[in-house]
Design a protein around this nucleic acid. Sequence first.
DNA 1: CTGTTAGCGCCTTCAA
DNA 2: TTGAAGGCGCTAACAG
Lengths: 359, 359
Amino acid sequence: MQRSAAAKPTIKEVARLAKVAVGTVSNVITGSVPVSEELQQRVSAAIRKLDYHPNHIARSLKTSKTRTLGIIVPDLTISFYPQVIRGAETAARQRKYSLIAVNSYDSAERQEELLSLLRSERVEGILLVAAAAPAQHDVISRIAEAGIPMVCLDRVPDKIPVDSVCVEDAAAAQMGVEHLIRMGNRRIAIITGPMALKNERERLRGCKQALRRAKLKLDGDMIWHGDLNRDRVAALCCERLRNPATRPDAVFSTNGPTGLGVLCGFRDCGLRTPEDIRFATFDELVVEDVFLPSITTVVQPAYNIGFRAADILLARIEKKLRGKPVALRLPATLKVRHSSQSAVELVVDNAARFEPAVI
Amino acid sequence: MQRSAAAKPTIKEVARLAKVAVGTVSNVITGSVPVSEELQQRVSAAIRKLDYHPNHIARSLKTSKTRTLGIIVPDLTISFYPQVIRGAETAARQRKYSLIAVNSYDSAERQEELLSLLRSERVEGILLVAAAAPAQHDVISRIAEAGIPMVCLDRVPDKIPVDSVCVEDAAAAQMGVEHLIRMGNRRIAIITGPMALKNERERLRGCKQALRRAKLKLDGDMIWHGDLNRDRVAALCCERLRNPATRPDAVFSTNGPTGLGVLCGFRDCGLRTPEDIRFATFDELVVEDVFLPSITTVVQPAYNIGFRAADILLARIEKKLRGKPVALRLPATLKVRHSSQSAVELVVDNAARFEPAVI
DNA sequence: CTGTTAGCGCCTTCAA
DNA sequence: TTGAAGGCGCTAACAG
């Protein structure tokens, strides 16, 4: 065991120990060329004895294949993304690819570095959740020009011909707002994330559609443009909610981080939901230090978004899919919980407190 | 632009375009050997024009350095781990290393595959959160024998001489239980995760210590051995909590996933916390479909665990740290919220509902 | 079926 | 300061 210590054994040493040629060892490992039972045994034994691990670096250099996919997400600590990654990883593993995940922290600069890194690592395809920052058209299209397959997910850039997978933003948001309307709310405020993101614009469109259909008037004062920062969103809400006379019946948030900010805002100005104000949001929330009644949410199929995106990417890589960009849109689900219900129900119905109806 | 399309440009093409030797291009890129201003310009221009990205594969093969670290965690969707990863990634980036993260899903088999994969990828060091499965001594010690630096975090294996970073398990758990005692609870049930994990055993030890100090009797019936599966834990709780005569005043859970199971258990048997039963848990929770009062938790310094672990790993890699394994233990923090308070306070004090005291 | 050999793209001597 | 050449470990093609 001592000899195998520091210096990693190479295929040559395995060959020497097994008393075969390096080619044979390679054949055993890759399985691409049949090898006699006898030699296979000898080779396997040598591999085990030396604790040999084939050098993927060298293999990749030779084959110019890395069997690796890259995924760039804004922030791993936003609970939506780990699920996406899990989906993508599963799809990749099924085809014996591995996945390397990195965070852009929504910085365009960092995103560019990461893209460059992934290209240097020679990943065979890239899954990208674009950073919420402007000016990425050329960065993205350069990837395509370099012949590296890419699929954009969740946040799909505008006007760039690229494969994409995301939720049906408009329909999902519409569903959320329609639910609030159905619960009897009339003055509904919409709070969005950065309008630079196309999906935020789509979601807002869906919200407006719901209001229009219900013949509620589209009051400009009831559309609040927030961002993804909890504290800023909380402050914004506080300010808008201060005056009881103009206060909305309900608030709908078009994404999770913003939604969390809204809840903080409610807390900060002493409003309870659903008693004082109803609430629903896009995305499940991670809540670690906010007191919460259960929150009605529009749930994205996060795992599937990741899985399907990786699936498309792999199909491109393996040339099983050719031609025009595909734009896959997956439906969302509405989980009705307490924040959107009337207060009376909540107080009376203790069972429902724990087992809210789900549509 | 067309020529740079499919086939990735190599250093040779850059050299040709810049009319210099390949060595010069390499010198410009690595910066290890000074190059005249004039040639630097020409080279940079060529790199930009060709959209050239140095091939890390080839570089690694040549230098036998990958500047890459690997981290194996049980499950990225457990909110504790993304924070750990973030910490580790930050430390790595500071030294210009990159980090590749993979999930073992607590399977010993998968963990072994991943370890093998990382070795094949020639990562220069490994951060390991050991899978909650037995028989890994040899797997782990083989890494050390191969001369690959490794740091175990969070779940530190028993009796293996390896660098490790985790929270002060016993002290942290003790703090949690002492808090419950201070809040006036006398019959306190402890529910643990798999006892195969050393940190679970340590936490249990801390809990017992707290009970002993308070001269509360250590009732075997009040120590429940659960696991990390929400449904099984919920079922276990339901069973133990059914009989009001033997029901504890409070429950302390030694980890997050188990804690979430306990909350489901409360829900399933119609118990409210803190009104009917007090509760506190190790770890912040991700709660997506459970109604929740805010939960008192023992918070681990997740980011720092990752950061410090990577720091130690890098020091080993760069030989700045030698000798015996270091065992770093970081203190936890107690976040007092509602689940551990008396019901009276909760109802009366509406402000505290939103801004609980924090010790 | 087995053994031999030529590079994959890059970095690092070393000589000029 | 610059250029030329060798080889990192592996696989794929080919010859035996």
